[in-house]
Design a protein around this nucleic acid. Structure first.
Lengths: 193, 193, 193, 193
DNA sequence: TATGAATGAGTCTTCATTCAT
DNA sequence: TATGAATGAAGACTCATTCAT
């Protein structure tokens, strides 16, 4: 007797665990069910298809990250724009590095049109957040940018792209160096002199 | 009778075509063979496995892009560092946009360890190129960067990451806007005032 | 709905049937499934691979034969050692002749290391049985042998080897003649004067 | 420029080598050709099919063994029947043990009807040899047997069957023990008191 | 004789999905 | 809700054989 939402989350947790243990290619419904201690058919009571499960996994991941960024941006009230930017950069990097295997799924699995839409929207939310912050910072005269939308996008994917590649192809990362370079890049991109 | 190298290229061309028509998930040996007008077994005369074919496809793509960047950097002799940077940015964006489907493969298929190694090296070459250029520009007092390696990496993946996402999830791109924002980002990142 | 054990047996029966109809080389998972009136995937619910199915087939065959020999040896309680030996010889010959096609598999398919192990053990059990009987007969002063182990082995394979060859290469056998010659051989081998 | 017969032998040698290195399942025309330093098509100039090559391999093996037995039986002129029998037994065992991998082919590959026929005849020759010797020994009052044909067959397969099983399934053999037990068996079977 | 690229039928195997219980 | 046996389409890969040169 598990609450509906809980069981769903458990299945997503199981899916993450499977990816962690067996790699992205090892993500099968069979294994997800086994790891969740549930029959295969049960998975289909919560997800219409494997693609939707994967989509949900990606969305949840992106939502967690977005929540984290939201939390980080709350500090803006202090007025410390650069400090906030630095904190957000660090948080994103650390989140990715501690969720390597889901990140691998995000980079790798594309899913059906419906999942894509979900993912598109989740990414959109993240970007909107960043765009709004940049705009606001610019309005307050702290940042100086011409095209906040594209700039936010480029900066976000500078981080994500680098991390995806690193996670998929490189064994180890120099986390601190990445953090400081990323910070430097963002400072410059946002017009810090 | 086709020269050995040609047949290999034909098969890679066919693979690209298949991805273009059927999507990444539709890339099967069967279809590659059919599109190349060749028996299935023939594919295995040139590639030991599907993974190796995919690896070769990715490597070829990256090599083409690297060649393009090499060509772009040749203009550095003119001494026009910023113009060269602008040109390279534009070239990379246009290459990706005109090779959307291979790009999708690059983002999506991971391949076996051997293919990964090939890809790792190909990416390494591209980055080395960029790093060397940035270093040289810095030495000549044109660019101003603290950490050329990580900066080159971040900038490269800012472009690639944005393009991958755009290609996979967004229907249409505002190419000109992307070009100019990317240029702006790179100018700032490299210390243009 | 079939009980789990039954379905497994049905599949082995089907495999035997296939060998009977199509020969050892015609034993494919496809055909086994078809003959069992089951989907191909179902076979893999009961056997991890074709090799394991073949191994199970061989093991079952050997177990049946062993059971038969066990039954035959039960008569030893009567004290009629030679009669029992004669009966066992006859039973082995008849079993083989009425299971020609499985016998052909035994002689032909080797299977993976796991199946080999199973087969090794099954053969070991059969030989142990014979060895024990010979030893006991010797202890009771009926048989007279120097090396019960090797003798049992040689006698067992005299029968099996002859039958394998006959079944694989000769169209018809003079069963009665074989029985009486085999009996004669065993009598002499066990020291009957 | 190799004489026709030589090339054929070379191919059979190559086939034996392949089996030795890769196991019976690894015996492919590709590998035979490679090992013989010859193009794949060339194999088909000497053997109409893989089955015929295998048949030839088995036949050659049996012929070698038969030649060996013929050589052994030549000693009969000395009148030492039991010594000759002992020598033949030993020779057969040693031949098999030193040709394990071809022996594995003999036990395993069945071939087409034509190859079967060749094999049948080769076995027939071997058996005829043994039968003749037994008959002659009986005529001279040394051996005492009722049914020379079946006895020869059973004795031959006692050796071959035991060796096949040992070679396929057991790692190591106690050669000396096998020799002496086999000799004992044959002595008794032929009426030695 | 010799070559070796090309063939393609044939196999095993996987796995998302369904459905009767 | 939950189960898990059954399905079968789909795909990777092998290898004996052919044939133009």
């Amino acid at each position: 007797m598990v609450a509906r939402g809980d069981r769903r989350e458990e299945l997503l947790d199981a899916a993450e665990g499977v990816v962690e243990d067996e790699g992205v290619a090892g993500l099968t419904i069979d294994r997800v069910a086994a790891r969740a201690g549930v029959a295969k058919g049960t998975v289909y009571l919560y997800f219409a298809s494997k693609e939707q499960l994967v989509g949900a996994l990606k969305a949840r991941c992106l939502e967690e990250m977005t929540a984290m960024v939201v939390a980080g941006l709350a500090d803006l009230e202090s007025g410390d724009w650069w400090g906030t930017a630095d904190a957000v950069v660090e948080a994103v990097i650390d989140y990715d590095l501690s969720h390597r295997w889901v990140i691998a799924v995000m980079a790798t699995e594309t899913g059906d049109e419906e999942s894509k839409q979900v993912y598109r929207e989740a990414t959109g939310q993240m970007l909107d957040l960043l765009i709004a912050a940049i705009r606001q910072g610019a309005a307050e005269g702290v940042f100086e940018v011409d095209d906040p939308e594209t700039t936010a996008t480029l900066l976000y994917f500078a981080l994500e792209g680098t991390l995806h590649h690193t996670i998929l192809y490189e064994a180890d990362v120099d986390r601190d160096r990445l953090v400081s370079s990323a910070r430097a890049l963002i400072h410059r991109a946002l017009g810090d002199d």
